[in-house]
Amino acid sequence: MDKIPILRMGRFLLVTIQVDLYDRLALTLEADLIQAVQKHNARGVLIDISAVSIVDSFMGRIIGNIASMSKILDAETVVVGMQPAVAITLIELGLPLKGVHTALDMEKGMDLLRSMMDTTDNDEDEDAIADDFITE
């Protein structure tokens, strides 16, 4: 059976989808990816769909699911490299992919993930200071 490889890079997981997804492959990816987030304690997931020429409502829902599931496991998802024709069909279909971060390419996606990590880390620092203040 086909499988889409999931690569780990520091606290991030990288997925490059090189084939046109069919339903079972997409479902397998969803399950594998969510397990990998937990196993590697990942903070971010980067999905490259630049080689995907068709995203229909089912695939769109899987992408949305991956983002929401990662979110409740404390990881952010960024989808990169969407083809313009795919963006057009997704919106016309009525699937705006709410809650999914996007970036034009891998590099910008990586920057976006890093910047999100920075702000969350800062938030945590501020919280820590606030906590100290309260205990004092």
């Binding site: 339903d23 020429s53 068709i54 229909d56 083809q83 313009p84 024709a85 069909t89």
Partner: peptide, 17 residues
């Protein structure tokens, strides 16, 4: 054109599902 091709194949994908 590419955009119309994508629309058509996406539509076919929905219906075949």
């Amino acid at each position: 054109g590419l955009v119309n091709q994508t629309r058509l194949i996406t539509a076919a994908s929905e219906l075949v599902r």
